[in-house]
Amino acid sequence: MGVATARQLVEFGFSERTVYRRCLDGGPWQRILPGVILLFTGRPTRTQQVHAALLLCGPDAVVTGLEVCRRHGVRRGPARPVVDSGEYAEVQVLIPDDRQVRSVGFVHVTRTKRLPGGPTRDGVPLAAVPRACADAVQRGVCTISSLAEELDSGSRRGIAAPTAVLKELRAGVRSAAELAAKRLWPKTGLPEPWWNATVRDAEGRFLGIADCWLDEVAVVWEIESSEWHLSPEDHDLTVERAAGFTAAGAVHTATKPTKLETDAPYVIGQLRATYEQASNRARPTLTAERARAT
């Protein structure tokens, strides 16, 4: 494979001083990541880059994201983001929650309490396809629609029932985004909302299920779903639902899932301003029902 950790090389019989001396300019080895050594000069293959990422992250680490899609046969579709000064494409890796490893260079590390099961290919442990795709979408490197196009194109060796995969993927991404929204909410200082409330107009007509509903001022906050639409029809339905809320008198605001992670202060400010705007007008005659506990 040509990749090893410095600790492995020391255990094999090299002194630590020798290991790092061989990685100096002009030496026969090179350091690709902290504590991870390439036992040759020149550019590593993609597989060697991935193995280096796994060595950095330690036992039980699992590759996720677009790398998994590529190894399952998705050859077109979204390109992997290039990082580390443009040298290598990013590798996303999941590690146990109690492991203290940080993202560095071309390796993006995510800690998780539940490591996903999945296959091992060419010695590389992979997350299951739905989880890997969800991680890629959450990372902001692609959208579900772009993955859907690729899976429907016929280039999907090793991926059974792509429609089922996409359904599971969309559910996973949406639940993760809603969880992020719920975690953010207490920081707004606003009254506690109802989540996934059923909203009806003054005549009792169904308007939709609001991701987040502030009943006292009739405000709808939704996690803007265009990032995981599978078709233009899905997008049209989302636009129509938002228009229905607005026409009935609710104040509607939406946030992209990636914004929750990348610019929380902006989202908090947006929510506070929306609440203030809604408080300064008469509440429309709308009714809502809390979601039933499951």
Rank of each mutant, 00 (worst) to 15 (best):
M1G: 13
A4V: 07
A6F: 02
R7E: 14
G13R: 04
T18M: 12
Y20L: 07
R21H: 08
R22H: 10
W29E: 13
Q30N: 10
I32W: 04
V36W: 00
G42H: 10
T45V: 12
R46A: 07
Q49A: 06
Q49H: 06
P59I: 12
V62L: 04
V63H: 00
L66Q: 04
E67D: 15
C69L: 15
G73W: 06
V74L: 07
G77Y: 13
D84S: 13
S85T: 11
E87P: 06
E90H: 03
L94K: 06
P96Q: 08
D98Q: 08
R99L: 15
Q100S: 10
Q100C: 12
F106M: 02
V107N: 02
V124S: 08
P125I: 02
P125H: 04
L126K: 01
A128K: 09
P130K: 03
A134K: 05
D135F: 03
Q138C: 10
R139P: 03
C142I: 10
L151S: 04
G154Q: 09
R156T: 11
R157Q: 05
A160V: 11
P162Y: 06
A164S: 15
L166S: 01
K167D: 13
L169Q: 01
V173P: 00
S175V: 07
S175C: 14
S175E: 15
A177T: 15
A177S: 15
L179R: 11
A180Y: 00
A180N: 08
A181F: 03
L184T: 03
L184N: 07
W185F: 09
K187F: 03
T188Q: 04
G189D: 02
E192I: 09
W195S: 11
W195C: 11
R200F: 07
A202I: 09
L207F: 06
G208L: 01
A218P: 09
S225L: 07
S225P: 08
A243F: 03
K256F: 12
L260S: 03
V267R: 02
A273N: 09
Y275P: 00
Y275H: 08
S279L: 13
P284T: 02
T285Y: 08
A291L: 04
A293V: 12
A293M: 15
